[in-house]
Design a protein around this nucleic acid. Structure first.
Lengths: 198, 198
DNA sequence: TAAAAGTCTTAAACTAGTTCATTTTTTTTC
DNA sequence: GAAAAAAAATGAACTAGTTTAAGACTTTTA
């Protein structure tokens, strides 16, 4: 029985939630991953590039966002330890991404390249199941979120986010939270003042 | 070479976009499906029930929606021929659904039950790949849509929807479109008048 | 550790979208 | 094919969220 470095243990635990791997498969899987570090304010990728990796975060915090025609950011997700991130659309189609991924803390990631993603399915077909379930679960939460944005007021969306992701709220700026909730930083400030007053 | 009924040809074509099945596998797959008909205004399922099936629409049009505390509907998708629908969350967790699915036209569907979904993966593991890709693609469009709702004005959302789904716009009421876009029917009416005037 | 840059707060004037009420038009039903 | 029901249009008064601008507070950087 080998012993793994911290980041590898973390990703193997993540994978083992949905599928069981033999020791050999674990080693094979890890051999397909690259280690990546990004400093705070550094970019993991920028709009216009074709995504090279899907990422697993072993340490840190990142934001995934687009810029609209006015240059205003719209954050689509915050990713912290034990989360997966990237631009699955660009990763699959090999077309240029519209997203930026920027570290809001010094971060460490494991990445699987597009080529190795294909190798993975050939060598360990079980990973079809892993990704089937991973995408299924992400899909459930995005279906919910896509209704959320149009069905709730900004104040309700803030309260829900804070309840669901208390650890994340503490690690990000109010301004970034506003860009995620879909309002101006000024209105975010008003909401927080109002909610705390209660 | 067998010949299949229309709905079966349609679903086999859909599946064959992502995986290749042998003749035997096709027959096995079809044996796991149930045929379902719903009349216009009829419910395929209602909130509070545990979802029994995932559905493929071979004919007709349906809307998937929740009701908020005020009883106002929020439509999360319209499903027409060659689309998949259901409540994937309730289907997987076996918890009661919060969704209603109602036919807006007389419709015909093929359903796979939760039990047969598990059998399917055991007997034809290739379907892990099919669902991996199906969920991946749905995920891409829901990620996009979840930003959409908070990043664009109602008028922009309407224009985008009309451009992307011109066939659907023609088949649904303005009121239902409003419940999808996330605005009141009155404001939807104003937007349409304004956009057509241009 | 001082200066610079970025974040947060507050407030006044504005705009997108809601609510409520009424009338007209279209669709459904018997 | 007439009556009933539902959908669409219109308008006036309202509310949630934006814009712009300025000052206070915090964090980053040299």
């Amino acid at each position: 029985m080998l012993s793994y470095k911290e980041s590898h243990t973390l990703i193997l635990n993540n994978v083992s939630r949905f599928i069981d791997l033999t020791e050999l498969e674990k080693q094979k899987y890890i051999s397909l991953l690259s280690e990546i570090k990004v400093k705070k304010k550094g970019f993991l990728m920028q709009a216009g590039e074709v995504t090279q990796y899907e990422y697993f975060i072993s340490k840190g915090c990142l934001k995934v966002y687009t810029l609209d025609e006015d240059g205003a950011p719209h954050i689509s997700m915050f990713a912290i330890e034990d989360y997966w991130t990237g631009d699955i659309s660009s990763f699959m189609t090999k077309e240029p991404s519209r997203y930026y991924i920027k570290a809001t803390e010094n971060s460490e990631l494991l990445g699987i390249s597009r080529a190795n993603y294909d190798v993975l399915f050939q060598e360990i077909p079980k990973f079809e199941k892993f990704y089937r379930i991973l995408y299924q679960r992400s899909l459930i939460s995005y279906i919910r979120r896509s209704n959320h944005g149009i069905s709730f007021t900004a104040e309700e969306r803030y309260i829900n986010f804070k309840k669901k992701y208390p650890q994340i709220v503490k690690r990000i700026t109010q301004k970034d939270l506003a860009a995620y909730i879909g309002i101006t930083p000024e209105f975010m400030s008003k909401i927080i003042t109002k909610v705390n007053r209660k």
